[in-house]
Computed example of a mutant assay.
Amino acid sequence: MKIKESVASRLFDTFNVLLMILLVIVMLYPMVYVFSASISDDAMVASGQVLLLPKAVTLHAYETIVKNPDVWISYWNTIRYTVVHTVLTLIVTSAMAYPLAKKWLPGRRAILLMAAFTMLFSGGMIPTFLVVQKLGLLNSIWAIVLPTLISTWHLFIMRTFFEALPDELEDAATIDGCGSLQVLVRIVLPLSMPVMATIGLYTAVGQWNAFFDALIYLNDRSMYPLQIMLRNILVAGATIQVEGDTSQLQTLKYALIIVATLPILCVYPFIQKYFVQGAMIGGIKG
């Protein structure tokens, strides 16, 4: 039996469709514009002639980026910072969230309160810098990775997910002779792909786009991530030179934005199905 829709219902659906189309245009236009500007003539970009489609197509900016060794060094630094930080974050966060999800853990409530305290108060930038300096971590990958290794919000999300898993699965594994670590690795983590993918994506995107920690903790230019180079060009107006040739600044800015953004855009579709599930975890009672 077909249910007849009211006029108000049809108007509401039409409004939603138009609104979604508008939002898609608003989100896609900057990406299309940046790509078009990156392959257009620099003078036309600077004069504002490029609005949507490229004008006088040229790949000079991309050629300059490809030929510059500093770009590839900073690219490698960004990749290794992101991979190491994401992997260690997932390992440490899951190792801490799993016991906190168990009511039998001694001092569980006190630990949760201390963790929640860090969401409201922090030591500040200068004390954190002094700690990193005293530990001898300056100018190393660990200065980028360790200070932000655990997010309290991510810890609570993962703990909530672990609490929602059936106890019968863990009890069965324990009867079969598995210890707590084996239960976590063999039973809990394989069932926790949504929350792992969600936290992993947020962590990777945050680390990929991070540049402030590198400004504070790194003095060696060979350790700089890609975002530092991008910042220098966008904010400081620096240029990339290859064999005495200074690239056109406008198109270079947009080309470097595309190069810096592309990896994250390529990763997201592969974990989208887990991300959609994991994004709803925050709505579960803690």
Rank of each mutant, 00 (worst) to 15 (best):
M119A: 09
L234T: 13
L113R: 15
T174N: 08
V87S: 05
M1I: 15
Q272A: 15
V34L: 11
F162V: 15
H85F: 14
L165R: 09
D176P: 03
R221F: 05
E163R: 09
D245G: 09
S151H: 13
W208K: 07
L249P: 12
T251H: 01
N77S: 09
D220G: 03
E170V: 10
L28I: 03
W72P: 08
N77M: 11
C178A: 15
V205S: 03
L230P: 12
N68A: 02
T174D: 11
C178P: 15
T64W: 04
R109V: 09
I79A: 10
V50M: 05
E163I: 04
V259K: 07
G179R: 13
H85Q: 15
T118K: 04
I187G: 08
F15G: 11
L184S: 08
M196F: 15
D220W: 07
L88D: 03
E170H: 14
L105S: 01
F156S: 01
M1V: 15
L100D: 00
S38D: 00
N16Q: 08
I144W: 05
V66E: 07
A46Q: 15
N77F: 07
I175L: 14
Y33D: 02
I79C: 12
I216V: 12
K103Y: 11
T86Q: 11
S40Q: 00
P127I: 00
A37T: 00
M158D: 04
F275Q: 01
I21F: 07
L189G: 05
M196S: 08
V183A: 12
Y274Q: 07
Y224C: 06
M229T: 01
G179A: 06
K285P: 06
M196K: 11
M223R: 13
N16H: 07
Y29I: 10
A46G: 10
I233Y: 02
R109P: 00
A255R: 00
Q272L: 14
K273N: 05
L218Y: 00
L249E: 14
D213L: 00
I150L: 12
V45H: 04
L53V: 05
D41N: 07
H154E: 03
P147E: 06
P106M: 12
A204C: 01
R108C: 11
L181F: 15
F121K: 06
F117I: 12
D245V: 11
S247G: 09
P225L: 04
T160P: 10
F121D: 11
F15E: 11
F275H: 05
S247K: 00
T118Q: 14
Q133A: 07
L18M: 13
A97I: 13
I3R: 14
I257W: 04
H60I: 03
S180Y: 13
H60K: 10
Y202Q: 09
M96A: 14
A43P: 12
A43I: 12
A56H: 11
Q182L: 15
V87D: 01
L234N: 11
T93G: 03
